[in-house]
Design a protein around this nucleic acid. Structure first.
Lengths: 138, 138
DNA sequence: TATTGTTATACTCTATAACTATA
DNA sequence: TATAGTTATAGAGTATAACAATA
């Protein structure tokens, strides 16, 4: 009951189940799924322009504007000028944003760990590695 | 660059990359993604009601109607009465639907195989098994 | 002339409510 | 009274086009 399913269907099912389980966690931290995605993209310390950010997270640049408006109003993100290109605006995480993301991420990781119960370290490594290969083979 | 990503983000990325790669294959067989999902659900020989089918594939029962209308008009699916409940309609694959699905699936599998290049049989088994566990742990 | 951010518009997809026929 | 299928409507999500400022 496993060899029959397409890989795409399995990824979709796993992604949907994870999203459903994680939504309440994000809500408890006052974040939507896409808001969390933005914070995650900025968390490593990145400071991309809005256009680059939109491409990184596969989100429409026109929709990103309202998303950033909300995050900026909540004090989680800041938009500043790009000294090298005055058309562009650089997006950064505020310290409040950094803390909010870290807290939400801890909750997300707890859910994931629970869902991976029974899998050993090597199996988890294979899973992450294979998914990363699939995501980057396009 | 792997331990940092959330599992949900990895699943979403892999699912999106697969969907993008598979869409042209499905188009070549005259199928949309959701049409293929319906055919796949019926392929094992199942004969569910429309409501059960909608729940199985996580699709809205009201949207399923137009989807089945199209598949029925194309001769890939048949809707018949349920002898046990005259309110319900039983959905089945026609022989044309069976063949169309088999042909499309072969193309899908070829794409997946190409994307999994470099992974051994055991790694692929771990991947499928872990994804199935994640999808069914809700 | 091309590009970034922005706004406005149109379009598609999805969810909700109401109807019919059966149970 | 409740449920399967259907239809119609409303809502959210997404894509397209046009604009101002800058390159």
């Amino acid at each position: 009951m496993n060899e029959d399913d397409d890989l795409g269907a399995l990824c979709a099912g796993a992604g949907r189940a994870l999203a459903e389980a994680e939504r309440p966690v994000l809500e408890a931290h006052g974040l939507s799924m896409w808001q969390y995605v933005v914070l995650s993209a900025l968390a490593p310390g990145a400071a991309p322009s809005q256009l680059v950010l939109a491409q990184q997270i596969h989100y429409d640049k026109t929709r990103l504007i309202a998303l950033l408006d909300g995050l900026e109003a909540a004090g989680l993100v800041s938009r500043g000028p790009d000294p090298a290109d005055r058309r562009a605006r650089i997006v950064r995480l505020t310290s409040a944003g950094t803390h909010r993301h870290a807290a939400a991420r801890a909750g997300i990781r707890a859910v994931e760990d629970q869902r991976l119960a029974g899998l050993g370290a090597e199996e988890r490594r294979v899973l992450r590695s294979a998914l990363a290969q699939l995501a980057n083979s396009g």
